[in-house]
Design a protein around this nucleic acid. Structure first.
Length: 378
RNA sequence: GUGGGUAUGGCGCAGUUGGCUAGCGCGCCAGAUUGUGGCUCUGGAGGCCGUGGGUUCGAGUCCCACUAUCCACC
């Protein structure tokens, strides 16, 4: 279990994280499968054909529906969903704050109501890690609080301090569980999460504190939640250099292709975002020339593939006009084809990013690619 | 044929006792969406109110005729 830096190009890193479920070439985009499935009728087999390296599932969602204990009993998440590669599980912290109602935050953890059936659930660091251990994911995320980007300074400060105390408890609990005989993944990794909203000093101080804990990786959370792109890039500029250079860095929930290219430039290794899958379900396709809305009338008679030269399962066989028709007819196949195209696009974008770093011309490649992506589509 | 009902944007409907630029849902045309509730939100286009006449300062609204359509009866 190790992260190795292969090539550096400015702050951009080309690395490899070796895990029990295989190597992850970084920078890497994790494909979001919240409840153990990519939404849009995409199977684990499909993922092999579109270059997926890592799947991301969610602690909160799997706990409130189906249940982590049942999944453990059935052999763990990997065998349950038929995916042999790495899985990262998000801790549920974000969902507790974004989905659940009537939550009460205390030092021990958070009491909230399930968005499924309204029942009261308590989740703290130990509960989150126990669930993630039951799921047997490759990488577990620390249980954190994601304060609103509009939260005032005093609140953010005390929230971040609590998140740090929760991180210590997460680490201790994972260490305890890893040594138990019936634990599914005894090599489970733990990433800590940096918070601090848009307050520079809280961000950097917190980065320093968690860096000293020698975790398997570090995430930056609480970004892309309402602040501007400039604010987000600024937080990366001041935070990433405080995190260990020889550990993977994960920017949570980000983002657009341009966001990712810019964040790699600032030293980020891991990404995840619902855009390719959610926007795919809603009719949007990502390309090297920007995002297109296939529902638009402009594509009604367009027999070209979504992107010339793309070898995804959609572009190989179907036209924009056909996808447009499927969307109008509300056929499930439209969602499936667009999600496959978008994830293929993201996964292969990361390949291009890795190649550019290896070739030593990342900045130049990034500028040129961003320019192309912000053109207006035909 | 007789009696009754209904005619308002593509579809389904609201429109007070006649009173300002005639509304709503769906659809259509666009735009948002960043650690996912197969959503949601925000804009926009589109109507000589079935036709013709009348009453009135003023008619989608009241009156007459016609046309179309629905229901019941013969």
């Amino acid at each position: 279990m190790s992260y190795r830096l292969i090539v550096e190009n400015g702050r951009a890193k080309r690395g490899r994280l070796s895990t029990v479920h295989g190597d992850i070439e970084t920078p890497c985009f994790m494909n979001v499968a919240t409840v153990g499935a990519i939404k849009g009728a995409v199977s684990s087999d499909d993922l092999l054909s579109i270059g997926t390296q890592v799947v991301l599932s969610n602690t909160y969602h799997l706990h409130v529906r189906t249940g982590d204990e049942l999944i453990k009993k059935l052999g763990g998440l990997h065998s349950f969903m038929g995916w042999k590669g790495p899985i990262l599980t998000d801790s549920g912290g974000f969902q507790v704050f974004s989905l659940a109602e009537m939550r009460k935050i205390k030092e021990e953890g958070v009491t909230f109501q399930s968005h499924i059936d309204g029942r009261r659930i308590f989740m703290g660091p130990e509960e989150s890690i126990r669930i993630q251990s039951n799921l047997g994911s490759t990488i577990a995320m620390a249980f954190d609080e994601c304060p609103s980007s509009k939260a005032d300074r005093d609140y953010v400060k005390q929230s971040v301090e609590r998140t740090t105390r929760w991180l210590v408890r997460c680490r201790d609990e994972l260490e305890r569980l890893r040594s138990l005989p019936d634990t599914i993944n005894k090599e489970q990794l733990l990433f800590g999460i940096n918070q601090g909203a848009v307050y520079d000093d809280i961000r950097t101080e917190h980065a320093d504190i968690i860096s000293a804990m020698d975790l398997d990786g570090y995430a930056i959370g609480g970004l892309a939640v309402g602040e501007t792109h400039e604010e987000m890039y600024h937080i990366l500029d001041i935070t990433v250099p405080r995190l260990p250079r020889n550990k993977p860095v994960y920017l949570m929930g980000v983002g657009t292709p341009v966001n990712i290219i810019e964040a790699v430039r600032r030293g980020v290794d891991f990404f995840d975002c619902v855009y390719p899958s959610r926007n795919g379900r809603h009719g949007h396709a990502y390309t090297h020339h920007g995002k297109m809305n296939l529902k638009n009338q402009a594509y009604e008679e367009d027999l070209r593939p979504i992107e010339e030269g793309c070898d995804c399962p959609c572009c190989r066989s179907y036209s924009r006009a056909y996808v447009h028709h499927l969307l109008k007819a509300k056929e499930m196949l439209a969602m499936r084809l667009l999600v496959l195209h978008n994830l293929h696009f993201y996964n292969h974008l990361m390949e291009e990013i890795r190649a550019a770093i290896e070739e030593g011309n990342y900045d130049e490649w990034a500028d040129k690619t961003i320019e192309r992506m912000t053109e207006n589509l035909p």
